[in-house]
């Protein structure tokens, strides 16, 4: 018997919620980034699952490919920002970035 679609959606939901909680509670800038990656992956699981389980065809897979590539780009820029932040504040704690200056 085949795995029901709902199971995959649930896995995607767990990834998504973990990512949201991670983004909300972590104070380390890199950890916030990891939360973003988790959210994107939760979305990806849903895209690919729907591509497999519905007659929509391969579009879901193509969209998830775009998501993967854009996530890589996002991570590169965010890391460059994080490094700059670290250089300016000597910490990666995002709560310390509360002064409105470079």
């Amino acid at each position: 018997m085949e795995t029901p679609l709902a199971y995959y959606l649930f896995v995607g939901a767990v990834l998504f919620v973990s990512g949201i909680v991670c983004m909300a509670t972590k104070r380390n800038g890199i950890a916030v980034l990891m939360g973003v990656e988790l959210v994107l992956n939760g979305a990806n699981v849903n895209f690919v699952a729907f591509a497999h389980y519905t007659p929509l065809g391969l579009d879901g897979q193509i969209v998830s490919l775009f998501v993967i590539v854009l996530a890589a780009a996002e991570a590169a820029v965010a890391l460059a920002i994080a490094l700059n932040f670290y250089n300016n504040h000597q910490t990666i704690d995002v709560d310390r970035g509360d002064k409105l200056r470079g």
Binding site: G29, I30, L33, M34, E37, A71, A72, A75, A76, L79, A82, L83, Y86, Q90, T91, I92
Partner: peptide, 15 residues
């Protein structure tokens, strides 16, 4: 790729 980059960031920013 991306995760290696992330770990790189972790290494560079851990005081």
């Amino acid at each position: 790729g991306t995760l290696v980059l992330l770990i790189f960031g972790v290494m560079l920013t851990a005081s």
